[in-house]
């Protein structure tokens, strides 16, 4: 629609590192719709899907410098500025999405301050997970994972956690992962069922283990300076849209994972449930403790919140 009052519309550039077809892509498109409708075209969102503007790191740096206004971001992004957010992605910290959501809600006031210190405004969060393992040979127990070459994202935390579990964390580019599984450079890869399905890994790695090591938040952030330059009613408008679509995304994620698992199974991937998840969690506990130690008071506060909300 044409902007009310004939003025140039306010354009909010949003960078989405996931494809448009994912729960995140759909949520952001919906957010853009809501904002434009409710402002009668006075506020418009310019959405770039599929990481068209670059890596997650490029996105968060873009929000910081002001070449983007908004993005959702996790360990590969916001954690580069606020390292404490990586604590949410410690392995086996949560048994389900509710636990994580409770922890994130409890930590929000603290996070808001930490983000603001680094030039970001926290508006809400999407969720992803549970991350699972897909492998070339079946992983049914903690013993099976020992010594496996496990591809993880290029993040210090993930490499430590994989090593702590007894696997060998390999941080190769995701583009090499398919060939890596095919040729045996790596034995396994991790990600949410939906990520693993869309990557087509099932054809070379027909075993998916539901170890559910990570449920994680994807903070929806706005550049602090840009946010403060908005009129109060514009802020309200955006905040309301974020609140609405993030609730929808959470419901959609659970459905997407169910659908992905069904599709993977139809494609001949064996879905493996583990019975000794307690033992997996115990195995990485020292690594988590060691990782948490590097942080100051804010980090310790988050650890307390995680302990209160997460697994005992």
């Amino acid at each position: 629609g044409s902007p009310a009052g004939g003025e140039e519309p306010l354009v909010i550039r949003y960078g989405n590192i996931y494809p448009a077809s994912t729960t995140f892509g759909k949520a952001v498109d919906r957010m853009a719709e809501l904002v434009e409708e409710r402002s009668d075209g006075a506020v418009r969102m310019d959405v770039f899907h599929s990481g068209a503007l670059g890596s997650e790191q490029v996105h968060i740096e873009g929000v910081r410098e002001g070449s983007l206004e908004m993005a959702h971001t996790g360990t590969a992004g916001i954690a580069l500025f606020v390292p404490e957010t990586a604590l949410f992605e410690q392995w086996y910290a949560f048994d389900d999405l509710d636990q994580l959501a409770r922890a994130f809600d409890d930590a929000t006031p603290l996070l808001e301050r930490m983000y603001a210190d680094k030039g970001f405004t926290l508006l809400g969060t999407f969720y992803n997970g549970p991350r699972t393992l897909i492998s070339t040979s079946p992983i049914r127990s903690l013993d099976d994972v020992q010594g496996k070459q496990l591809r993880v994202p290029g993040s210090d935390l993930y490499v430590r956690m994989a090593n702590g579990l007894g696997a060998r964390g390999v941080s190769m580019p995701l583009g090499d992962a398919f060939t890596g599984l095919q040729t045996g450079t790596i034995d396994a890869l991790e990600g949410s069922p939906d990520d693993l399905r869309s990557g087509g890994y099932g054809s070379v790695a027909p075993y998916l283990t539901l170890d559910e090591h990570v449920y994680h938040p994807l903070s929806i952030v706005y550049g602090r300076d840009a946010w403060e330059a908005l009129a109060p009613e514009q802020r309200e408008l955006v905040q309301a849209a974020v609140d609405e679509v993030s609730a929808e995304q959470r419901a959609a994620l659970e459905q997407a994972n169910v659908d992905a698992l069904t599709e993977l199974e139809e494609d001949g991937v064996e879905i493996i449930e583990i019975t000794d998840r307690e033992a997996w969690a115990d195995r990485v506990a020292p690594t988590s403790a060691g990782f948490a130690q590097r942080f100051g008071p804010d980090g310790q506060r988050i650890v307390e919140i995680l302990d209160a909300a997460g697994r005992p």
Binding site: G54, S55, Q57, V58, E61, G62, E65, G66, S67
Partner: peptide, 11 residues
Amino acid sequence: PLTLVPHQIFA
């Protein structure tokens, strides 16, 4: 902002 220039050239 023109910081996009060094930012993207490095990226």
